[in-house]
Design a protein around this nucleic acid. Sequence first.
DNA 1: TTAGGGTTAG
Length: 931
Amino acid sequence: MLHKWRKPLCLLFTKTRILPSLSSLSISTSTTAAAVSKDPVGEIISGVRSLGFSEFTGGCHFKSLVSVLNPAQIDHIIEDLTAQNPDSAVDFFLLLRNEFGFKPSRISRFVVSHVLAGKRRFRELRLVVEQMIQEEGSGSAPSLSELLTGRFRGWESSNVVWDMLAFAYSRSEMVHDALFVLVKMKDLDLQVSIQTYNSLLYNLRHTDLVWDVYNGIEVNRVPQNAYTRSIIIDALCRQSRFQDAVSLLQQTEVEDFGPSVVSFNTMMSRYCRLGFAEVAKSFFCMMLKYGLLPDAYSYNILIHGLCVAGSMEEALEFTGDMEKDGLQPDKITYNILAKGFSLLGSVSRAWMIMEKVLMEGLKPDLLAYTILMCGLCQIGNIEDALKLREEMLSQRWQMSVISYSVLVSSLCKSGRVDEALELLNEMDAGGLQPDLILYSILIHGLCKQGKVEHAILLYNQMCFKRIFPTSFADGSILVGLCDKGMISEARMYFDSLILNNLILDITLYNVMIDGYVKTGNVKEAVRLYKQIIEKGITPTIVTFNSLIYGFCKNEMISEARWLLDTIKRQGLEPSAVTYTTLMNAYCERGNMRDLLELLSEMKEKSIEPTHVTYTVIIKGLCKQWKLQESVQLLEDMHAKGVTPDRITYNIIIQCFCKTRDLNKAFQLFDDMLLHNIEPLPDTYNILINGLCVYGDLKDADNLLVSLLEQNVNLTKVAYTTIIKAHCARGDFGRAVIFFRQMVGKGYEVSIRDYSAVINRLCKRCLIMEAKYFFCMMLSDGVSPDQPICEVMLNAFHRVGQSNSVLELLAAIIKMGLMNDPICWCIHEELKIFVLWSCFSSETGNKLSCDVGLELFCSEIASAVAIVTEQLVRSSQMKLEARKDMKAVSFPPGCFFLSLARLGKVHGRRGSEQDATRYEDNNLFHYVPVDL
DNA sequence: TTAGGGTTAG
């Protein structure tokens, strides 16, 4: 059941908000004018010495002295104060920096750092050093080290300052600066603390450098602590060295400290991220065996792992255990649980969790909102997700880039890209910058909607902001181009990526290969596959699945089957898609035996069939008219929790229509609605067609009218189906009504739609009606094609309407449709025309060949050969032909007009002059004919 | 220095 919107979350929130009073923050900055001192440095130093720091600096005179100091003088004062009263030096430094906004020099900072280090005021030391390197920026380590080595060598506490410098660089993620300082420290024989080492290990845990640093710790015999251990365990896990990680975790005897809760937490977290919640659980038990007490992290990590794995019951059990252990579930626990329910599509339960948060007196945070929005989007309820956004905004909550991403992604998925772009503008207006993922989502959404050009604009905008796209964005653009059939453009883009060495990603190759197979170009797809192998890139199952699809589509089923074996030989596991693609190919050929064999193989390998797999099997059963079995399979799908889609239903419904069991067809349609499966426009087309062909046309009429009243999304096919049915049954009136309605609705009506009607009317010799539609087509600006003209001409012949034949032939020539006159020579009337041309030519009447004919004289000759053969060779026949010509009653001037237009047929328009020349020849009179 | 929210290809 869909989530029903309940009371707004905001009503449940406490509205109290403590704002700092502005008046309490105001600082008086006014200074009293004082005479300019000749020796401000001396006055300050002696003032502090005689009066004490607080008393002296509190006076107005001090302010006037400070206002004239330059950086060198400040350094001088700080150094002087340091020598006599280090605390006052620090106080002076902080006062100038915080109250007077002075930017301290490097020297002052280092002097104060040494003082703070000596006094073991590490917190303040860290702040001073961190602020310095933030201002100095990345790459500043060599110059700062030089200053320390040159000016502060031998200072007391120098080791602590050096160590703090390395630590601060590491904490600020300037890892290379930190490593530089470490090298200098080694040269000066200074000790690096384990805290600094730990921070560096942490920052380098993704890389091989982590092992160099760790080696440094061991070589220098720096005592490690539990954090070192847990970081190394994390690094081993991140680098997929799980066995080593477990060994290290269990290595207790040689160390002073045993395994820590943090180490266990790290292990559990890593395993959970890999989807192995069960393994994480065993670590949880192991932790208990070691006599360690799990903390809130331990529980939250495990609960999260279970939630993501969909084991909600167990997750809730652990939440209960957490409480029993005296650990109150916190906001994070509840967010995790809410996410778990959201993932399962149960937004109402996620909502209940949030209500529990409120009852506990906690306030849902931005993440809670985002999780709920995500859950709503997941079940396709974008409207309520947007309401939640409005609620957030009304509560003056700042939406994060991630919350925007959730909405943007969902809007894009449902094709509402314009609204997604509006949100981007909203972010921009609010000063919130989109990040890589948000850009990627939008680029992907635009490409899926076929708006590749717009996507490329965004791509460039992203690069301009120095946000560098990953292969995800490139893949989206490639997919966009391929979907639009712009395969050569896609290839050019792809090649440019290769040229710039930007393709290391198999995904992009897969997209390109898929693009080729979809357009039927298996050869190029195979060529790309060979390129992958040559480059040493490992193909994935997706690569093979696309190739298998390509082979199947090109009737190369044995090659496709051979590829399945290749997959197995390469040690890759075929996926449900692999099997389903092949099974579909067998199904299309009615080969149920091989289809079912593959199904058994899937079962043996414990590869779960997807809803598509089931659909293919159902299609096969329907082809064999095994309707009961296919319905049974549909029920099995529901029972197994595999949701059939609209195509599954369409297939069965269509089959029941064909067996004239329309009751069952509609029963399945109801079943579809009952399961919240929204019908496709195709579903309605199938039902309308079923009623038209196998049921009562009146019912089809009623169904269409009722669907239109309900504003159901229909395609043109619904109309054309019913129009064709009325034509076939001879109800011309209803056909016209629906046809006009279809045109009125703005559907693009093509020659095929008119042809479908005219064909059926002609078949029933409803000539007047066919002419009506033909004229309607012309007035709608749709040009007839040769087949429909042929149908009309044949119908005219059948009912003996020679004049209509001539009228139409003249119209065909007039409209410039007679691109290939030979094709039209089957019509007697044209034969005569051809013969006349030939006759004129033979009797020396060159004029007839001059106009139009001169351009395709040779073609006329071959036309004569084909059509008249012996007739032309015999003079007697020529005479007869002449008689034939006379015997036919032409509309006046028809032939001349036709001839005049022949120039147009071959790209040269017949001119008035040409017509006049014929007129002068006095054979016929030139009278324009207009249909 | 371990825990919670967002994006791909068949």
